[in-house]
Design a binder for these strands. Structure first.
Lengths: 226, 226, 226, 226
DNA sequence: AATGAATGAGCTTTCATTCAT
DNA sequence: GATGAATGAAAGCTCATTCAT
């Protein structure tokens, strides 16, 4: 709240106070966790007075939901491009690409989403929003399942696969990885994370069943088989 | 907390106060979430005075860690029986059985584990415990991976499968399901939950790749192939 | 506060904003009580911006005083017509009529007047106004006492009565009724309220002392005796 | 919260904290008015920590009600002795005595009672208490009316008097006086206040009606007539 | 070991007031 | 004159922790 910043804020950000609050909250949520995030801290981080928060949101929960919604929204967009890729490239490549985007998103959302479990009242209100607005994790699963079904029709995915189950497994894999990375403070470099996801995709594509002939998932037959 | 109850507590439970506190905390954590759990609430639920808590634990965080430890510990036991089953029955049956147990455990732990994300200070100390005591999710993954590797040696799992990746995928599936069930307040009956897990196992066993011949995962060849 | 309403306000009420604020405040004072009346609420009720209040009044207390002054002023007018009625009709009728008017006024003022006790700083400044401007309850008492004294001179009121005491008793009766109606949320219909006041007047006219002869306050001798 | 006071508090007042809080609140209520009374101020005045308030009362309103109830309680006791005095001394003396007690009580209660009008939420809860517990002003009226009716049977009060109406008039007179004394900051010495009340009683006993004969309320016939 | 009244820092929220437009 | 976003002091209240008993 230095002088320069204050005047700068008035020049540039006349109507951006709301966004500043959301960004500040998201940032603190990531850094300290829901329980440690106070309205005082948010206001300080956003560079505004504490009372200002209440001009833009009904209360702290309202702000928190705005943050949750924005984050969830990002989640959604990731999956919206999927339908366009049906039949393009290989299934493996599409899934890898999708899963990387999902993981990035989940890595950001996971601590916020998980935080909700700390306050069942907040969890309750979030549930309602998720149901009303048709957003949230289950939508991602549906979008991915739809993609897999489309590929199934093209013969690029085995006919006996249940698309919903496979979609859930993939997203679960990346969500689990995101949660564990946070929980264990694993500092994954992007390359390692990508490799892990590729491994996940490969495992699911191949399956665990032993195969009689040499129909392994060797790189050579990528384009042919899938 | 009448007189009779107090003395009864002294007769029977002289050294069980600690356990009562842990149970009470776990129960409240499940019901209300970390943020709503107060020392007063815990004391009331446990049927002791508020001050008593501090005779058994250094502070609230200490109690919370004891709870986390117990919960995480339970997670471990689930997987300890796995090595005994190598080569027994079918892989599918073993995995189904294991995954059901894991899911039950995760359904209980998920809200507590997730709650930790609300308080990064608590998360930090929990991390240390997880690392020191060699408990927690990553141990389950390792145990399951070891089992898969053993089956791989017996030829009951495809040789080109990375056991760690497959193990993570399975446990991720059940963890994801547990979190979503809580988040969306899905009331799953046990039968439906079991079916869902069986579907997950089947999907992973089969894989997504289309197969030329009719080597589907039809029920008939269960015992033969796996 | 849409555009049309704002411009309409500028056309018609250019200089009535002050009155709108006073009316709005009075109305909210009645409905919610002093403690619940906020500048924001007043502005909204008056249909102006919050800041506008400070163009017309030095601060919230200034506005509150304007309201108190107006209310108290209304109290005075009620009694101004009394002198004209000396010697007219019966004393009983005049008193009944006066008391009804006083009660109506007090029913409106009581909650505002009483509210002042919640803030002694406000009470202090109100006192000054009451003393300076010669308005307020004690003026009503004096006006009524003057009327009674005039009737006393005409022999329509007993010579040994202290006019001030009787005047206070009458107004006290209606004030007390007004306060209790508010306090207990008694929903009095006008007819019942009128009857109660008539009873009050009759009681005071007759007095409690037992009388030897049958000189009751029977309706027949109304005009004769009074 | 000096050291000496703290230890003194622990010696003497182990279980009197609740009373200290009530006394402190009552005192501040009188001095500053409801709106200026803060939990912080109460705690300081009582010499305890702010949080202590919440060990003894659910919230500020709860404490306020305890205060109101205590004050009201004093009001009640005043009237309880009345039945014993039926037929004793003169009616005038009994009423004077009663009214003095009522006035003392009302002088204390008035600012608190009136304060309630500043917060309609508080008013609402008070109403409920008044209705449930059968206390409050209307009970005083009833008790006094019962006394007057008893005197009526003994012929010491005129038969055509409506006891309820007369009782209300008397208590209204003293309530009105109490409110105005506060409102105008009249510093009445006890003697003047007593005289005023005696005047009130005399006025009501005599009535306003002019009397033909000399049956005035002269001091000589006190004991005989009443 | 157990108690529970007391503590006080710190939380969310309200609201009268200011001021650039 | 009018606006309303921004302010920040102060309110009511919570709760982990202490300590005399």
């Amino acid at each position: 709240m230095g002088i320069s910043e204050a005047s700068a804020g008035q020049e540039i950000g006349v109507k951006k106070t709301r966004q500043k609050l959301i960004r500040a909250t998201e940032s603190l949520l990531q850094r300290d966790g829901l329980a440690r995030v106070t309205t005082r801290g948010i206001a300080r981080e956003a560079g505004v007075a504490e009372g200002t928060l209440y001009h833009h949101f009904h209360d702290k929960a309202g702000l928190l939901h705005a943050v949750a919604q924005e984050s969830m929204g990002a989640f959604r967009e990731v999956l919206e491009g999927l339908p366009l890729q049906v039949g393009q490239r290989t299934v493996r490549e599409n899934l890898e690409h999708m899963l990387e985007a999902a993981f990035d998103s989940q890595l950001r959302i996971a601590p916020i989403l998980c935080s909700l479990f700390a306050d069942h009242q907040l969890l309750l209100r979030t549930r309602e929003i998720l149901n009303e607005r048709r957003i949230g994790p289950q939508c991602s699963v549906e979008a991915l399942a739809a993609y897999l079904q489309a590929e199934q029709r093209l013969g690029r995915v085995a006919v006996d696969v249940v698309p919903g189950s496979a979609a859930e497994l993939l997203l679960a894999g990346s969500f689990h990885a995101a949660v564990l990375d946070h929980l264990l403070a694993r500092q994954m470099n992007p390359a390692a994370a990508r490799l892990r996801l590729q491994e996940t995709v490969r495992t699911l594509l191949t399956g665990l069943k032993p195969r009689i002939s040499g129909e392994s998932s060797a790189p050579k037959d990528r384009n042919v088989e899938l």
